[in-house]
Design a protein around this nucleic acid. Structure first.
Lengths: 229, 229
DNA sequence: CGAATAGTTGACGTTACTCAACGGCTGTGG
DNA sequence: CCACAGCCGTTGAGTAACGTCAACTATTCG
């Protein structure tokens, strides 16, 4: 499928947005659009790494399975995010759609050639890569909290921020993009413990729940407080 | 202090190694050498981010302090590693010397100008940044293990690999670069638990200890096994 | 020699994991 | 339309692991 950059919802934020209009048109010729259904994977750990992608719509998770088959979620990818490994022969991690998603996929060779041709693209990817690095370190700091309640509070806050239109205020009501199992896989705990701490947060009137994924921040200040502990 | 690239121990591996000899000479003019004593910090979280550095000798830790003042180690920096935030106004994390260290420091403005002038430098930093990203995700996967024993086994293995000359085989004997407290801060646990699991590993004849930091891998296969669990 | 720092060990309480049962929602087939 | 299976989430009881507090030891540095 050919790219439709003109109507692309991330055309102002994705890495390609740093290119001049004609260069972007050039780049669009080497990219293809791909749709993933919820649960479908873009990459599998160990596959040869021969493509990369910018997420246009939806959400992805980057995860790995340990020896017993327990999933660990290492990162989330939001629209305009980039995924794929440019300098490694094989993919380290699985990349899977959390919701139905749309991507802009580039062959690795093509992308490497484009990096040579458009130095500003390399800079843009460097910037994204550093952002991903800080996101990974933030998650590391979050999952280092001793009590699951603190980790969960921090994750809910992060989700509320991601769901918000404004960059400074968290959304007051939003839908969790993750199942209980996925939350547990992000925070390094179990479904049962997530469930317990979640009902606890509701009992203490820090959050309100509507359905299994709807969250309302009843007391954001206290939530932020708990996230510190 | 001026740079002495000719005798630099990381001249073949650091980001600057991708530059032609004359370009490197040019770059060396904007850099300065700096020495840090063990425990001395290069950056403090919240400072304005106006310099970056390549580590030449020694070892650094990237860490953050939570509200109660507990340290969390987010990354280690080894020689040839790069540290500093190019695209953020303020530094997110503390960067501190684990051992006496020597760095090659660049002003951020100068480095940004160099990125424009030498596209291959931007590519090299992109590559490093992606490696750092995978290192952060590896640590995330490691600290996600439920039992401290598994996390500790994984960390000891990673240290043994880092201490080895050959990239494939871990060193059989080496010195831990971290104190018990720093190990605990990396693995998200306490000094006491590290101490207990460490004596346990020795009692089970998986490792042998000489002094407080000397480690010998008595049974690397079993250690790798424990790291899975 | 003494103080300070780092590491070890013990006793105890708390948290979270495990295993298991149950409830609610959804989609399918009678 | 209802019955049922399957999936997801919740709740409960018991146990194992770890955190906390505290005492003690070893090492280093003046």
């Amino acid at each position: 499928m050919t790219l439709a950059c003109e109507t692309c919802p991330v055309r102002d934020r994705a890495a390609c947005s740093v290119l001049a209009e004609e260069d972007r048109a050039e780049l669009s010729r080497i990219g293809t659009t791909r749709r993933l259904e919820r649960g479908e994977s873009l990459f599998f750990a160990g596959d040869s790494s021969d493509s990369c992608a910018t997420l246009v719509r939806g959400a992805l998770k980057v995860s790995s399975l340990d020896a017993e088959g327990t999933e660990r979620i290492l990162a989330l990818v939001h629209p305009a995010g980039f995924t794929g490994e440019l300098f490694q022969p094989f993919t380290h991690h699985d990349v899977t759609a959390l919701t139905d998603s749309e991507l802009c996929v580039f062959g690795r060779k093509d992308l490497e050639a484009a990096l040579d041709r458009y130095p500003e693209l390399a800079r843009a990817l460097l910037r994204r890569s550093q952002e991903d690095l800080f996101a990974a370190r933030d998650l590391l700091a979050l999952t280092g909290k001793r009590e699951v309640r603190a980790r969960l509070a921090g994750l809910i806050l992060a989700m509320a921020r991601a769901a918000s239109d404004s960059p400074c205020h968290p959304a007051e009501r939003f839908e969790l993009p993750l199942s209980r199992g996925e939350i547990a896989a992000m925070l390094g705990t179990t479904i049962e413990t997530i469930s317990r701490r979640m009902t606890e947060l509701e009992r203490d009137e820090v959050i309100r729940r509507t359905g299994t994924r709807g969250i309302e921040l009843a007391d954001p200040a206290r939530l932020a407080d708990l996230a510190q502990g």
